[in-house]
Amino acid sequence: MRLSIRHATFQRFAPAAKSMIQSLRLTPRNHEGQHVVHWRIDVDVECRLKPSQDAFGNVVHGFTSYGSLDEVAITAVGEVDTFDTRGVVNNAVERFPPELYLRSTPLTPAGRAREALVGAPSVAQEKEALDRLHALLRALFGGPSPAQQRQESSKGQGEAGKETRAEASSHLFIACARALEIPARYVAGYRLDEAGTRRDGMHGWAEGFVPGLGWVGFDPEHGVCPDDRYVRVAIGLDSLGARAIRCAHSGGGEPVTNVELVVGECRTRL
């Protein structure tokens, strides 16, 4: 499937900021499940976009800008060919052994995971990593379970510093996998949603490492494995490490951020 993506972020500073520095993780890379046809990032203030890679192999663009900055638009636009690999991620950039992804982080605390696992005895009954991960997805995110209800109540929290629903469910999934000694990580990316779904930011899901198979994606928010509706953009130990935009500014007010995100399917040209 060819997906066309347009992801625009508008930051408004009132009063205007005097300077800012930002780092953007907004560029997808190729692997067996996706091929980037073309991709472009635009920032509408005077700056030099400097590309680099972070430790996890994510493409990062950094920029600094000075002057009176009241509004900044950051736009990522492109097309990506995607293939359904049933969640398996092959030939992606891997900088670390899977073991690294066993460490817990402040956003993926072990304590909460242990609690959640107590309520899901079915998970531990499975022997193989892959079965355990699927059981985890079913048990915690397959139906209206307590974990999911909790997230329902925090629905719509897209504010800075608060977890979105996708982040919250992925973090719980990741923490549970790690508690079961299965390496797991966060993926930020795009998803072709059902018509009428509104998103005010990127989607996020989890990947768990299965010996013999490699990294396998799990989308706890939707209770499925990613297919050709998904585009991977950045990975991290948690959503903070994969965050699309990190911004610091001096002078002026705190920015109000609006996101316009459109993910669509390109129709084959006749």
Binding site: D54, A55, F56, R95, F96, P97, E99, L100, L102, R103, L237
Partner: peptide, 16 residues
Amino acid sequence: SDLVYRNPHYRPEMVG
């Protein structure tokens, strides 16, 4: 290796 990889003070960002 887990003493390194799972150490909270190990900074993957520094690798390379």
